[in-house]
Design a protein around this nucleic acid. Sequence first.
DNA 1: CAGGGCCCGT
DNA 2: ACGGGCC
Length: 713
Amino acid sequence: EMENSEDEEDENEWRNIRDMVTVVHAMCVSGPSISKTPVPAHKVILHFDLDCFYAQVEMIRNPALREVPLGIQQKYIIVTCNYVARERGVNKLMSVTDAKEKCPELVLVKGEDLTHYREMSYKMTELLMSYYPLVERLGFDENFMDVTEMVEQRLAQIVKSEDFSFKGHVYNHPSKSHLLALGSHIAAELREAVHSKLGLTGCAGIATNKLLAKLVSGTFKPNQQTTLLPENISDIMGCLSSVRKVPGVGHQTAKRLQALGLVSVKDLQLCPLNDLAKEFGSPTAQRLKSLSLGVDDSPVTCTGAPQSLSDEDSFKKMSSTKEVSEKTQQLLSSLVERMRKDGRQPQTFRLTIRKYTTANKWFSRESRQCPIPNHIGQKISSGISDDAVMQLLPLAMKLFYRMVDCGAPFHLTLINVCFSNLQSRAAAVTGKGSITSFFSQSTSPKKSQAVLSQCQCVDSSQGVDMDHQFGTDGMITQNNKQPAIQSSSSSSSSEAPLHGLRWKQNSAVIVEETRNASCSTAGCDPDETANAVTRLPPNVDPEVFKLLPEDIQKELLSPAYVSSLYSTSSSQSGTDVPSTSKSKLPETLTDSESISDTKDAANKLNSSNRATTVNHQGKAGTSAFPEEEVMEEGGLSFPRLSDCEFPGNVDPKVFSELPPDVQRELMSEWKQQKPILKTSSSKKPGKSLTSKDRKAPGKGSQANNLFKYFKPS
DNA sequence: CAGGGCCCGT
DNA sequence: ACGGGCC
């Protein structure tokens, strides 16, 4: 078995070598548009994890909090705290009582209203996406990024900018470590961008898959990054003391594994697949085993706009329908407001409750859901909020009575209201499904056909217009310094490795540090970050555009969705700092400007040109080496994206230049197509959907949509 | 056990 | 439509 897989590895290695040579050759010699992209067997995946996220946001809002031990309180729990507090023994998820005992000076800020955290979280994701759109969110403070294509692009540039020139092919196979090294530079640059533009610090993990990137990202905290070289994968995995450390193995799974006598990851690695399959079924068993070996081929999937919006509150006890009704109404009010700002129209409403039961059943929730009548949905998105709430409330109560027998006493500890099945505005207007339906099943078939044929013209007519910078935009500097190679023994990290990870003596990792980076230099030019523009997206034929209904036109142009993300909702839970100027654009921290260290004169200067200096020590102006500028490549065409995260005919470069709200709209569309994608193509993710794979246009087809604006693959 | 979310299986 | 599980 081992031998087999090794042979396969070798085969892959050789094919990859050939592919790599091909790519470099194609890019250097044949110029753009050849895009004979290999299936990358070795991806470069980044995992970003912001340091004590909520605490950072509060410290940005109120810089005075930086110097004090700060805890973020939700109900009776400290959900996170800054590092000053951690030095004094406060930890995440500690009870307020315990925390105050450990650290009487602890300053507490209420963190139940997530508005500010949510906003900052999306700023983070959008910033990353502006560099390369293949970004997946995990909670509010983590992001995965597949930078394989960026790395290959840089590789090509490096090869090309070489002083020597070769005739013909060059046998110059980059090792996985080389690719990861480039990935680590990208990670450092992105972290620097996040810090300079948003004022946030965080950690990054660089590895060949999501599992490993996430596993190592927190190895050195805070504000550092860690690269895992392929040689050390088995060491890392083998040293994990508990299966719980493996992302994807939660409490329940860990318990079931323990019942099988499996506690450490090593146990899991050595457990026969059959034994596992008996308890978990074959697919899950395989996945668990793979995870235990550090194998994870799950793709980074663009997250896009959220699939649902919800609001909830927990409490000690609620036992009367009157209370329930009032609380529900209150939750609905804020949820409806959020929904209206989002712009989409929910089709489904769900009510979730948690009943108190003496058993350890504190946890489990139950829910009921129902469709939202169209007239109510209209009121939500058209801003007749009070009416909407008033009409939703009886719906909610109906659902409530389905779960609770009000004849008998009851005891609730939580209520949650949720909108899901979100449809875009354009779709809602046409009365059908998603925006897709305009093209495929519009009320007027003729019109739809006309647009379709126009769209076909778009396909064939463009292909130039690729001269926007991309990929290296904002990252046109490179660090000359070699990353420090450290082994565990010599590494004097500021925090002991968590995860129960232990480096073997000779297992070297690449560690790049960025300490002392004060979060206070957050000044930045609003114009610069505002990537929402009121122009026609690239590669959209103006002629075609004119044919579209006004709604769709507006939707394509309006940054409504983005604005909604940043507009402040009146927070009823009196957190200090009153909201200042209500600019619609990504107001880049009116707050933080006041906190900036007044030494950002230089910062502001070079914010117009994007040659920001990458400094891994985090201290300004101390870099010994002038940073080298990487030549911007004008007509270089992007290789197609590796997996099917993007539909094959979508050029990431083009995509990245679209206004964020259009990006979100598109990604939302792709997500809805995913079921189709999955059933039409087999499990192998290497294959992208071509037009042949989709259903022919006609009734019930979801085939035709904004894809048409992109060049064919 | 806080407040959100997302995905999966049935 | 719901529950379970994971972050």
